[in-house]
């Protein structure tokens, strides 16, 4: 048992330092400040300017802006940080000093990955907290639905994070993994269309058409569907304390974790024999 705890001590230590360093990155701080400004501006300013104009429409608009802001900036932060923690250390050679310590490569990766998750969680929590406060002050109802949404958003992010991280282990700069991460996010939100392609492809009966259809179907099944985690419509259209509907939260968490573990295993396979 102590051996197990000991083998997590190194990764945890690396995670905490990764977190400390990551939270200082200018790009990340920029994204965070910007998103907080948008949330703050859209939800607080409007009522200051004209308190009488508190219509239902306006409330929906504000919620829409805030949810979208969290989704976009959260994703940017996720991709940016997942893409950069390992390449940065390879680039400035800090990795030499770390890997030469009694730290196995898998422990190093685990530490870095956990550190990235800490960063994502903290940022998401800050953005979510401000939005939470805004809704509460406006509607005087605890927006529990928002909490569920933030939770699911994190598990959406962890999928993108893990695959971006895997790509970053194969590259020496953070440019390629950043592009890769955004690509994963975009395809991940569009997988519904792949199913569309499949259902329509059978119609002509031609071989090529069928092949494309099956390819789309295969991709649809393999790629993570990030839209599963989306509660945007519910947040906008329902009461803040409604329970989430149409989603199986434990299943989604398991789904997110499964993809995250797959991504992490990929990064280990890439990193295991990588030359520094």
């Amino acid at each position: 048992m102590t051996a197990v705890i000991d083998s997590f001590r190194g990764p945890w230590c690396i995670a905490v330092y990764t977190w400390r360093e990551g939270m200082r990155k200018k790009t990340l701080v920029g994204f965070l400040v910007l998103s907080l400004l948008v949330i703050f501006g859209s939800s607080f300013m409007s009522s200051f300017l004209d308190p009488s104009a508190q219509s239902d429409m306006e409330l929906k608009l504000i919620k829409d802006i805030c949810v979208t802001t969290i989704a976009i900036f959260g994703m940017l932060i996720t991709v940016f940080i997942s893409a950069s923690v390992v390449p940065t250390e390879m680039d400035n050679k800090v990795i030499y000093t770390v890997l030469s310590k009694p730290v196995r490569r898998v422990q190093y990766l685990l530490g870095k990955f956990l550190g990235v998750q800490l960063i994502i969680l903290v940022n998401l929590a800050l953005m979510g907290a401000l939005f939470f406060l805004a809704i509460y002050l406006k509607q005087r109802i605890l927006p529990t639905l928002l909490l569920w949404s933030i939770l699911l958003t994190y598990f959406q992010f962890i999928i993108v994070s893990a695959f971006t991280f895997a790509i970053s282990c194969a590259s020496t700069s953070s440019v390629l993994p950043t592009i890769g991460g955004l690509f994963i996010y975009i395809t991940g939100t569009l997988t519904e269309y792949l199913k569309d392609v499949f259902t329509r492809s059978g119609q002509t009966g031609e071989l090529l058409d069928k092949i494309v259809g099956y390819l789309a179907y295969a991709l649809y099944n393999v790629l993570p569907n990030l839209m599963h985690f989306d509660l945007k419509d519910q947040i906008i259209n329902r009461a803040p304390n409604d329970p989430p509907t149409d989603v199986l939260i434990p299943n989604l968490i398991a789904y997110g974790l499964l993809y995250a573990i797959t991504g992490f295993i990929m990064s280990y396979i890439i990193f295991r024999r990588k030359e520094m």
Binding site: K93, V94, Y96, S100, V103
Partner: peptide, 22 residues
């Protein structure tokens, strides 16, 4: 040589390395 047992006994100063400067 990558086992913790061996590495615990090695101190290494890399060439022109950089350390986390924050």
């Amino acid at each position: 040589i990558s086992s913790a047992k061996v590495k615990r006994n090695i101190g290494y100063l890399p060439e022109g390395a950089y350390y986390p400067d924050f």
